[in-house]
Amino acid sequence: MKKTIAACIAATFAVNYTSSALAEEAFLAPLVEQSVLLDIDADEFVVIVGERGHVLVSQDGNAFSQKQVPTHSTLTATTVVGDHIWAVGHDAVILHSSDKGETWEVQNYQPDLQRPFLDVLFFNEQHGIATGAYGLFYRTQDGGKQWVAERHASLLDPFDREYLEEIRKENEEFYQQELDSILPHLNRVTLDGNTLYLAGEAGLLAKSLNMGESWERYEVDYTGSFFDIKPLDDTTVLAVGLRGNVFVNRDQGEWEYVQTCSTSTLNSILIGSGSNIYALGNNGMLITAQRPLPTSMRDPYADPTECETDSGIAVTQVKDKAALLNATQFKGKTIAVSANGVKTLTLK
Results as ranks from 00 to 15, higher is better:
76 T>C: 11
298 R>H: 10
79 T>I: 12
190 T>W: 14
71 T>V: 11
286 L>T: 01
268 S>N: 10
56 L>I: 12
138 Y>M: 11
26 A>W: 00
231 P>A: 15
119 D>Q: 00
151 R>A: 06
42 A>G: 10
279 A>H: 00
101 G>R: 03
99 D>W: 05
68 Q>T: 15
221 D>W: 09
288 T>G: 02
254 E>P: 09
16 N>Q: 04
247 F>C: 14
176 Q>T: 14
78 T>M: 13
296 S>T: 15
314 A>E: 15
195 T>C: 06
258 V>S: 01
200 G>N: 00
292 P>L: 00
339 A>I: 07
155 L>V: 03
236 T>R: 01
58 S>C: 01
180 D>P: 11
269 I>A: 00
221 D>E: 15
161 R>D: 15
48 I>R: 09
81 V>Y: 12
142 D>S: 09
133 A>K: 07
38 L>G: 04
30 P>L: 02
244 G>E: 11
75 L>R: 13
67 K>G: 09
287 I>W: 02
230 K>G: 05
37 L>G: 03
92 A>S: 06
38 L>A: 06
123 F>A: 01
191 L>Q: 03
108 N>C: 13
234 D>C: 07
125 E>G: 11
141 Q>V: 00
33 E>T: 10
306 E>F: 11
96 H>N: 13
124 N>I: 13
260 T>N: 06
203 G>S: 06
218 Y>E: 05
78 T>Y: 12
